[in-house]
């Protein structure tokens, strides 16, 4: 069990003693109910960007940033994605349970070096879905929101409305099976209890039973929302290909028109690339500006990988992902 520490204290310690060059955490965002990434460079950052800064000013800036660090139920981004940006530098990153599985995935795929990582684990009960809150309250998402104990409160069309915090978290969080980080050097909170969840959610059961026509209609509708901004891909820690198939022009696999077939092709290929690798962190869903429900399809894929191979991505860095290896026991009914 890793040592429990205070977030700001450990950040200050790691940065000032030169144990890390970069610290990646969260700060309050300018929007209500949202947190933004906060990237802090230490005194010994080998690729320090602001070389022209006086050492005093630099220390002040670092101290100010450390003081701005937060961790709470607003911290939705999966910061592991930023590790690609700081490759080969000593980096500390704050991870929730789901995010920690992305770290394991990157270790399995040799995309990060454990020696360069300090993992700050953050036990988590779920993060708030800002847009869901707005929908529950019937107002636009950018209004000021108050927090009153276990409720959110805000003014909407002249009257005050209340929503329970527990009702306001993402679906992915409600279905989360890993509230506590699976890999960490320090913890910044006490472990939270893990609720018992059914193997398959009711939604997934229903989807599996639905007719192909019904599933096609739903898929078509979701994909019609997509504007191909690639936020899902760019936010996904597992999407790190140097040249994505979507950016290839010879041959050009995917067009960029508003015909839903372009979005379908993009997402289907991306889904297949994520088979057995997606950890279900939900970064793609949270970052989508058009509310495309990619979660459903990723969940579907994950449930199959679990059923066929008994595998959950990002749980154990010593285990090879099923689609990266072959065993005689693999399901093979599809080979005829």
């Amino acid at each position: 069990m890793p040592k429990q520490v205070d977030l700001k204290t450990i950040a200050r310690d790691l940065l000032t003693k030169g144990k890390v060059e970069v610290f990646i955490g969260y700060q309050a965002a300018s929007l209500p109910l949202a947190a933004a990434p906060l990237i802090i460079h230490g005194a010994k950052d080998s690729v320090d960007a602001s070389q022209s800064m006086a050492p005093d000013a630099e220390r002040d800036m670092m101290a100010r940033k450390v003081a701005a660090l937060i961790f709470d139920d607003r911290c939705e981004m999966n910061l592991v994605n930023y590790l690609h940006k700081f490759k080969d530098r000593k980096t500390a990153v704050v991870v929730k349970g789901c995010d920690s599985r992305s770290v394991v995935g990157l270790l399995q795929e040799k995309q990060v070096d454990r020696k360069n990582l300090v993992i700050i684990g953050a036990p988590c009960r779920g993060v708030v879905d800002r847009r869901h809150v707005a929908k529950l309250m019937g107002c636009d998402a950018s209004r000021e929101v108050d927090r009153e104990g276990e409720h959110f409160r805000f003014q909407c069309a002249g009257s005050w409305k209340r929503v329970k915090v527990a009702d306001a978290i993402y679906t992915a969080c409600r279905e989360c099976q890993v509230h506590n980080p699976v890999i960490a050097d320090y913890w910044i909170g006490a472990p939270v209890p893990q609720p018992d969840l059914p193997e398959l959610t009711a939604e997934m059961e229903a989807l599996r039973k639905a007719s192909p026509d019904h599933r096609w209609t739903r898929f078509h509708k979701e994909m019609s929302k997509c504007i191909l901004c690639y936020a899902c891909r760019n936010l996904c820690p597992a999407c790190y290909c140097k040249t994505c198939f979507a950016d290839a022009c010879k041959p050009k696999w995917v067009g960029r028109t508003d015909d839903p077939s372009d979005a379908m092709l993009f997402h289907l290929q991306r889904l297949m690339h994520l088979g057995g690798r997606c950890t279900g962190c939900g970064a793609c869903v949270r970052g989508c500006p058009m509310n495309v429900d990619l979660r459903l399809y990723n969940d579907h894929l994950r449930s199959h990988v679990k059923q066929e191979y008994g595998f959950m991505a990002g749980m154990d860095s010593a285990v090879h992902p099923p689609l990266a290896m072959y065993s005689m026991g693999d399901c093979n009914e599809f080979i005829r």
């Binding site: 960007a49 901004c229 760019n234 970052g287 500006p289």
Partner: peptide, 18 residues
């Protein structure tokens, strides 16, 4: 040097532009 920091959180998607 200003630009060395401003881009850091950006993931390079097209949501803002689109």
């Amino acid at each position: 040097d200003l630009w060395n920091r401003i881009h850091e959180p950006c993931v390079g998607c097209g949501a803002c532009a689109f």
